[in-house]
Amino acid sequence: MTTKAIPKSTGITLTRRQRRLLNAVLYHFFVGLVGIAMVYPILWMVSASFKETADIWQNISSIWPKSLHLENYSNGWKGFGGISFTTFYKNSFIYSGFGTLFQVASSAVVAYGFARIEFSGKRICFALMLSTMMLPDQVRMIPQYILFNELGWVNSFAPLLVPRLGGAAFFIFMIIQFIRGIPTELDEAAMIDGCGKAGIFFRIILPQLTPAMITAAIFSFYWTWDDFMTPLIYLNSPKMYTVSVALRAFSDRGGGGATDWGAIFAMSTLSLLPVFIIFVAFQRYLVEGISTTGLKG
């Protein structure tokens, strides 16, 4: 967006520069202001993570802690009865790491099948795939549990990870849409050069799917990281708990005793970090995009 062609008349240069400056100021003012509203919840949470319990509740709308209580982090990290967040993070990374890898990789393969190959029964398969997203989880939970129980998979990562090898309807559909947005000329050129379908997928389609794959990976990682129902039901020992499960085990609204809210906020704040890091690390690829030269046909 930098100045490519500088006009010769200085008068016009100034006004154009001024206009550009004005644009930039307006842009940053507006986008920045809304941005503050966007990050306010996080700021509030980070601030609460440094407050002591009484301060959290006494000054609930204040974003400034009265004093910094770093021990919230160490108290929280301790976890429960000697099982610390080190364990929970390890489990979460297993679930989110492999879960994302499996889900995104096979979604791309399946999406290519749906988007670029004609076969009988395709429409039915596609409809069935979409329909899996339309039934609320709440009624699928019990039959699913019984299925995995019969398979003897309960209390292992298998019910969490194995089904992901089949991809996920959301990502399959998403990648299909991206593939269908890619012109077919290159496919055909490659085909004429004797490339097979797998070859086209890997050499032509996949490189152009970078933004879609990155987006899918960001989502998949976050949704898996955040998922707590599946790990809660299938991982039946604190040594296997994920961060999301552990976070929910901190407080007991109905019961008595004091809840260490400072520690809850500290751990909740920390739990956002991996998701955030993944996003920041990957979004670069979203910005730079892909080179699509040579398509002018």
Binding site: G81, G82, A249, D252, G254, G255, G257, T259
Partner: peptide, 16 residues
């Protein structure tokens, strides 16, 4: 059992 961090710590101690 259900409970808070405090209860988990105490109960696990008794289990040990």
């Amino acid at each position: 059992w259900w409970g808070s961090q405090n209860r988990h710590d105490r109960t696990i101690a008794v289990i040990d």
